[in-house]
Amino acid sequence: MSQNPNSSLRDVVLNMRDLTKIYPTPKGDYVVLEDLQLQIMKEEFVSIIGHSGCGKTTLLTMIAGLNDISGGDILLNEFPVSGPGPDRGVIFQSPSLLPWMTALENVLLGVKQVFPQASKKELKDICAYYLDKVGLGNAMDKRATDLSQGMQQRVGIARAFALRPKILLLDEPFGMLDSLTKAELQDVLLEIWDKEKITAIQITHDVDEAIFLADRVIMMTSGPRAQIGDILDIGFERPRARKEILNHPDYYTYRKHLIDFLEH
């Protein structure tokens, strides 16, 4: 598979070198990932696809700093990652909003952390801007528990973007939604991403989602000792519209490539 044509020209944002993850178990060490090499470029959207248990979530949580690294390192703008921080925004599989807060307060909690120099009004403007972008301009003051799951995940997206992270990590963000809501949220995500162009890494097991969102799809082999099995460049122009992509002649070629890998 050809490398991303521009990769040599663009900056590497995230660099994983000889990355290894070992979970010690009573029966001996369980090696999830071994000597994984991966570079993510600036303003790139990467999807990582693989079966459950292949270590893709482990990889993402290591980048997020929520999971210790057993060997090798992860460099973010050439500095090694240690511990979590809001420079790596995470959108979790479950929206994980704090249920006792409103949508606005949930976003505000993080925004206050990264904009300590801002005035109260500026903080609120930032939250309102992103909540509006995800279509929640009129539901900002609703409690998280009063929102549907799709709506909650929209707040999750707004919260992540509002922190203006260097890199966005998405852990199967739409895995728990039905396909219509899923499609809706993919559109919301792409619309806001096209504007912000934050480097993004997304974990998914949904072939169509990977094709629709990503510039590059990384296919991981099943664990233990998971490896990068294959990489597929998705050449669709941006901004992307779902209807055009569905009817694009290359769509089923890409789809076949990914399905062949997963069914193999």
Binding site: G85, P86, D87, Q113, V114, F115, P116, Q117, A118, E122, D125, I126, Y129, L163, R164, P165
Partner: peptide, 9 residues
Amino acid sequence: LPDLEPIQP
């Protein structure tokens, strides 16, 4: 959107 740069905690 206010023109602000994020600061890492």
